[in-house]
Computed example of a mutant assay.
Amino acid sequence: MMFDLPDTDTLYTALCARDDSYEGRAWVGVTSTGIFCRLTCPARKPLPENCQWFGSVGACIEAGFRPCKRCHPLAPMAKAEPVIDTLLAALEKRPTHRWGEGDILRMGLDASTVRRAFKRHFGMTFLEMARQRRLREGFTTLAKGGPVIEAQLDAGFDSPSAFRTAFAKLLGQSPGTFATNALLRADWIDTPLGPMVAVCDRQSVHLLEFVDRKALPTSLKKLQAAAKGSLGIGRFDINDQLEDELRAFFSGNRAAFNVKLTYHGSPFTQGVWDALRTIPAGETRSYSELARTIGRPQSVRAVARANGANQIALIVPCHRVIGADGSLTGYGGGLWRKQRLIELEHRFKDQSAA
C-alpha cells in the first residue's frame, strides 16, 4: 500500500512537530479524551500511550472516536487554516480586484504565512489564484458571446494588450482568434483542486485539464488543428453532465464517470488510456503493472509516455499510476494534486470494503 502507516514512534514525532506532510494520510485517536485529530492539531499533545493511529477518518469513527473541535478533521484540509477561508471569501467578493501583498497586509495577515498555506493546499500562491480568478471572469463573458472588450473589462484589465497576453499565456492563443459557432468549444469548470478547462463537442469530451498545466496551450492547439480551426469558447448540453459528474466525484458520491469521451492518440496510446480506466478508484498501479495489463510488458517507457500524454484528467485516471517503489511520479497537474486525488479516492475504497 502506498500510504501504509509508519511506526508509532514516527507518527508521534510527526504529531509533536505538527508535520503537515501527513495531512489526509494519518489521524490520531486519543483514548483519554475519546476524540480524534489531525496530526497538525494545535491542541496539547497526548501521552504516547494514549494514542491510536488511523489511516482514514472512517476508521477513527468506527473505533468510537469523536472529531476534534479545534482541528476539525471532518472538514476539508484547507478549511483547517482560517487564513485560507478569509482570503477565499475576500476573493469571491472582489474577483476582478488586482490583489497584491499590500492587500494581504492591510487585512492583518502575514504575507509569508499566506504564501505557504496556499502553496501547501493548492500548489499556487493566493496572488496566482487571484490572477486566475480574474481571467475566469473574462472567459465567462466570452463563453456567453460577449465581445473581447467586455471580457477584458470584466476581467479587470485596463489594457487590451495585457488581457490578450494573459489570455494567450493561459490558452495558447488570444481571445479574438477563437472561432464562433465552433464544433469544439472550451469551457471553464471550477473544482476543489482548482479550475479546469473542458473542450467538448455536442456529444463528447475531448479535453479536460487544469488551467495551470503547462501543456494546456499545446494541447488546445492540437485540438484546434484536428478540428480544422473550429475551436471556440462556450458550452454544449454535455457540459452540464460533465459538471454534475465532477461535482459528485469530488463530494464522494460517485467514483465512475459516464460522460462520453473522444480520444486523440494512436491506437497504442488509446489502449493505455482504456487500461487506466479499469483501475478502481482508491487503488494504484505501477507503470510495469499497467504494461502487463495491456499485454506489452516490455513497453514500460511507451506506457509512461502514453500516460503523460493523457488529455482527459480525472476521467482517464492517470493520477492512479505511481512508481514501482510506491513513490509519486510526475503528474501534469502537479504532484500535490496527484496526492490529493489519491487521498480523496481512498474514501471510495473504504465505502466498497464496507
Rank of each mutant, 00 (worst) to 15 (best):
G252D: 06
R38V: 03
P48Y: 00
V28W: 10
T165G: 05
G333L: 09
P6A: 14
S56R: 01
T141W: 04
T13R: 00
T293Q: 04
G172M: 01
F65Q: 05
R133Q: 12
P160W: 02
D158A: 15
E283A: 13
P192M: 02
A226L: 14
F250A: 10
L88E: 15
A313Q: 06
L11I: 03
Q132K: 15
R347D: 13
N181K: 00
V300S: 02
K260S: 08
L74N: 01
L246D: 13
G102F: 04
R164Q: 11
N258W: 00
R285L: 14
S299Q: 10
S288H: 04
R185N: 02
A309T: 06
L135K: 06
L341P: 08
T278R: 05
R285E: 15
C51E: 02
R136Q: 15
L5H: 07
A78Q: 03
L142R: 09
G334R: 08
I279H: 06
H319D: 10
I61L: 05
D237W: 05
I61R: 05
G34Y: 06
T113A: 11
S352V: 14
V30T: 12
A226E: 13
I315S: 09
R235M: 12
D187W: 03
S219E: 06
R70H: 09
F178I: 02
I149S: 11
C60A: 08
W53A: 06
V83R: 04
P76L: 04
F236Y: 13
H97L: 11
F3E: 15
Q311F: 09
Y12Q: 00
R164E: 14
N307F: 03
P160R: 07
P195M: 01
K349N: 04
L109P: 13
E62Y: 03
Y331L: 15
M77V: 07
V30K: 06
A17W: 00
R115M: 09
A324P: 14
I294W: 02
F65E: 04
F139R: 03
G108A: 14
G323I: 02
D154Y: 04
L341C: 07
D212L: 08
D4R: 12
L127G: 15
L171H: 01
K338P: 09
Q241M: 07
H346R: 12
T218R: 14
L223E: 11
Y22T: 15
T86I: 07
L15N: 01
G156V: 05
E137C: 15
T8E: 10
D240Y: 08
I35M: 07
S288Q: 10
A353I: 15
L276D: 07
D187K: 00
E101Q: 14
L105M: 12
E62R: 12
E343W: 03
S174R: 00
A281I: 03
A90T: 06
G172Q: 00
D103R: 03
P6F: 09
H121D: 06
A75I: 02
I149F: 02
G229C: 10
T141L: 11
W273E: 12
L216I: 07
R301W: 05
L344E: 05
R337A: 12
Y12D: 00
R247H: 14
I104Q: 12
L170H: 02
P147G: 07
G333H: 04
F139I: 08
R115Y: 09
R18H: 03
G172T: 01
L135S: 09
V205N: 01
K119P: 03
G308D: 08
S204C: 14
D158G: 14
A63V: 10
V205C: 08
T31M: 04
P95D: 00
G308A: 05
G64S: 06
